[in-house]
C-alpha cells in the first residue's frame, strides 16, 4: 500500500515535470526562442512514465523524434535538455543535436531519433549487448503507430524474437502517423496483433492509464530480464498537439480532439483524480508538485538562456573518435 502510494506519487511527479517542460517548450518555440522542430509529447506522458518507472539506471531506452518525455522519465536533466533545445554549448549534445537528438548514454538514453522507426534496431542491438555481456539489463524501444509500418519494426521484432533478446517494444499509438490516421495507414486496430507474426507476446492497453502501463511494462521487463525474450506493448493514446509545433492538426476531428483532452481522458487529470480518490494526496499536495515542476522548468530556461553559444570551431569536432 505504502509502496503503491509512493510509486503513484512518483509517477505523477514525472508526468507533471514532462507536461510542464513540454508546455514551456511550446511557448518558447512559438516565441521564437530557438530554431528547429519541436514534437510535443503532451497527452502521452503516462507511457514514458509508466514504462521507465520499472527501469534501472543501467537499462537502456531508444526514443523518438517526440522524445522529451522519454528522456525526462529516464532521468534526463531538464536544464541540460532545455539548453540543448536552445542550441547552447551547455546542452546535452553541446548544441549539436537539438530536440530530436538529445541523448545521455551514461543514463542509458541512446538518443531521441529524427528517423521514424530507427530506434528499434538500435534497442535490439543494445539488448543484444546486455545479453552478450551476461547482464540482466534490458532495452526499451519507444515508437509510434506510424513506425510500426516500417521495415525496421518487422526486422527488429523478428530478430529479437529468434535471439530471445531482453528488449521491450513500446508502441505509442496516438492514432496519427503525421497527418495520416491509423485507419488509413494500417488495416488493423491493434498494433499488438503484429506480435503474433513474430511469436512473441503482444498486449494493447490504455495508454492514458499510467498504472496499467506500469503493470504491463513490469511484466514485460521481468520476462526480458529472465531471458524469455521480447514483448510488444501497444499503448493507445492521443497526441494533444499537431505532429510538430506549427502543425494545427486540422486533419483531426474536433470532437475526437475535445474528447481526448477532456478531464475524463487526460492522462494527468486521471492520475490526480486517482490520487485524491485513494487519499494519497490532497489538492495542496498536487499544487505543490506542479509549482515545484514550474520552478524547475523556469530554472532550466534561465540556465539555457544564460548559457553561451557553442564556439564556431565546434562544428569540426566530434565527427570521428580519434
Amino acid at each position: 500500500m505504502a509502496e503503491k502510494k509512493e510509486q503513484l506519487l512518483e509517477m505523477y511527479k514525472t508526468m507533471v515535470r514532462i507536461r510542464t517542460f513540454e508546455k514551456e517548450a511550446i511557448d518558447l518555440f512559438a516565441a521564437g526562442k530557438f530554431p528547429g522542430f519541436v514534437h510535443s509529447y503532451l497527452g502521452e506522458e503516462a507511457i514514458a512514465t509508466g514504462v521507465c518507472a520499472n527501469l534501472k539506471d543501467s537499462d537502456y531506452i531508444c526514443s523518438t523524434h517526440r522524445g522529451h518525455g522519454h528522456l525526462i522519465a529516464k532521468g534526463g536533466k531538464l536544464d541540460l535538455m532545455m539548453a540543448e533545445l536552445y542550441g547552447k554549448s551547455t546542452g546535452y549534445c553541446k548544441g549539436k543535436g537539438g530536440s530530436m537528438h538529445i541523448a545521455d548514454v551514461d543514463l542509458g538514453i541512446l538518443g531521441a531519433n529524427g528517423i521514424v522507426g530507427a530506434g528499434m534496431p538500435i534497442a535490439t542491438g543494445a539488448a543484444f549487448a546486455c545479453k552478450y555481456r551476461k547482464t540482466d539489463n534490458v532495452a526499451i524501444a519507444f515508437f509510434g503507430d506510424g513506425a510500426s509500418d516500417r521495415a525496421t519494426f518487422h526486422e527488429s521484432l523478428n530478430l529479437a524474437s529468434i535471439w530471445k533478446l531482453p528488449v521491450v517494444f513500446v508502441c505509442e499509438n496516438n492514432g496519427w502517423a503525421i497527418s495520416n490516421s491509423q485507419e488509413n495507414h494500417q488495416n488493423i486496430t491493434d498494433v499488438s496483433d503484429r506480435a503474433t507474426a513474430y511469436g512473441i507476446p503482444g498486449v494493447s492497453i490504455d495508454g492514458n492509464d499510467v498504472m496499467a502501463i506500469s503493470e504491463a511494462a513490469e511484466e514485460a521487463i521481468k520476462r526480458a530480464r529472465k531471458g524469455d525474450g521480447p514483448t510488444l506493448i501497444e499503448c493507445k493514446t492521443w497526441r494533444h498537439r499537431g505532429h510538430f509545433e506549427g502543425d494545427p492538426g486540422a486533419y483531426k476531428d474536433p470532437k475526437d480532439q475535445e474528447e481526448w483532452l477532456s478531464d475524463a481522458k487526460d492522462a494527468l487529470v486521471r492520475v490526480e483524480k486517482k490520487l485524491i480518490e485513494l487519499k494519497y494526496a490532497n489538492k495542496a499536495d498536487l499544487d505543490k508538485v506542479k509549482a515545484d515542476a514550474q520552478t524547475e522548468v523556469d530554472a532550466a530556461v534561465k540556465f539555457a538562456e544564460q548559457s553561451p553559444d557553442p564556439d564556431p570551431s565546434e562544428v569540426l569536432t566530434d565527427v570521428y573518435t580519434v
Partner: peptide, 19 residues
C-alpha cells in the same frame, strides 16, 4: 534473418554499448 536494416542497426546499438 535476411534483414539488412537490423543487421547494421543492431550493430549500432551493440557498438554504442561497447561491443
Amino acid at each position: 534473418p535476411i534483414s539488412e536494416a537490423v543487421i547494421v542497426g543492431h550493430a549500432v546499438g551493440a557498438a554504442a554499448l561497447g561491443l
